[in-house]
């Protein structure tokens, strides 16, 4: 029996996302770029504030080893998730908004709440491929024109929020061995990347299902391991997010 082949096939569950982010990392490795699209000037509100549910964060921090393998770091990742939640709460508060957490317990594959998350994954991929990426769709006229549809009502009912925010981040750091390879590479005139940060955030209107705001962040530097650095990253990622009221 094998404990590797299935790992391989199971890993391919998310391989497309990884592939895509790698593509971006490769293409935009040089420098930092943040690009956003917003369909709204302000968040809708009834009593001056807006409720935003933060969907389960898809975050992974890794060490980039000398050989170029990324090795996920559980402790860093757990810390990063806490830092991002705290920083997002502060950023939302600055925009007269409250952060709610999503409770994912006990859902099955067919449930609308799970399917909405899967659909958002596909829509996020589509926006990165067809809007930011090279394969433009002529019918879209460079507009962000995607929705999760009417079934979003299930998420509104489940959370009581006005908006849902999805955050995805992959971050890698050079190990000591990697730094050595980098130095050698510099001497030999070969570019060896020290680590990259790729992330995006997307805001969905829970009344219409529409993606109303989207931002992506690609950087050759940046850090999520410490609170201070994570604050900076989250501030950059959410910089253009509108305020309520």
């Amino acid at each position: 029996m094998d404990h590797t082949t299935t790992m391989r096939s199971a890993r391919s569950f998310r391989s497309i996302t990884k592939l895509l982010l790698t593509a971006f990392a490769v293409i935009y490795l040089s420098g930092c770029a943040a690009t956003h699209v917003s369909k709204i000037d302000q968040l809708s509100t009834i009593d001056g504030s807006s409720e935003i549910v933060l969907m389960p964060l898809d975050v992974e921090l890794s060490i980039l080893t000398a050989a170029g393998l990324t090795e996920p770091q559980a402790e860093w990742t757990q810390n990063a998730v806490q830092h991002i939640k705290t920083a997002a709460r502060e950023e939302f508060a600055r925009r007269n908004s409250n952060l709610l957490l999503f409770d994912a317990g006990g859902l099955n594959a067919e449930s609308t709440l799970v399917q909405l998350q899967k659909l958002h994954e596909a829509v996020g991929y589509t926006i990165r491929l067809h809007h930011y990426g090279p394969l433009k769709l002529p019918t879209k006229n460079n507009q962000i024109d995607w929705t999760l549809g009417d079934d979003i009502a299930a998420l509104k009912e489940h959370t009581g929020a006005d908006y849902a925010m999805f955050v995805f981040v992959r971050d890698s750091y050079a190990s000591a061995g990697r730094v050595a390879v980098q130095l050698l590479g510099a001497v030999a005139g070969v570019g060896v990347a020290g680590g990259t940060q790729y992330g995006f955030a997307s805001l969905v209107d829970l009344n219409s299902g529409e993606i109303v705001w989207f931002n992506q962040l690609i950087s050759g530097s940046g850090d999520l391991r410490t609170k201070k650095a994570a604050d900076k990253t989250v501030t950059a990622l959410l910089k253009t997010l509108p305020s309520a009221g």
Partner: peptide
């Protein structure tokens, strides 16, 4: 791991290459 794996890793996200 050899350096020849780097490209594979980039494309597949790491673990698949390991497999």
């Amino acid at each position: 791991a050899g350096v020849s794996m780097v490209f594979d890793m980039l494309l597949t996200g790491g673990l698949m290459t390991w497999a």
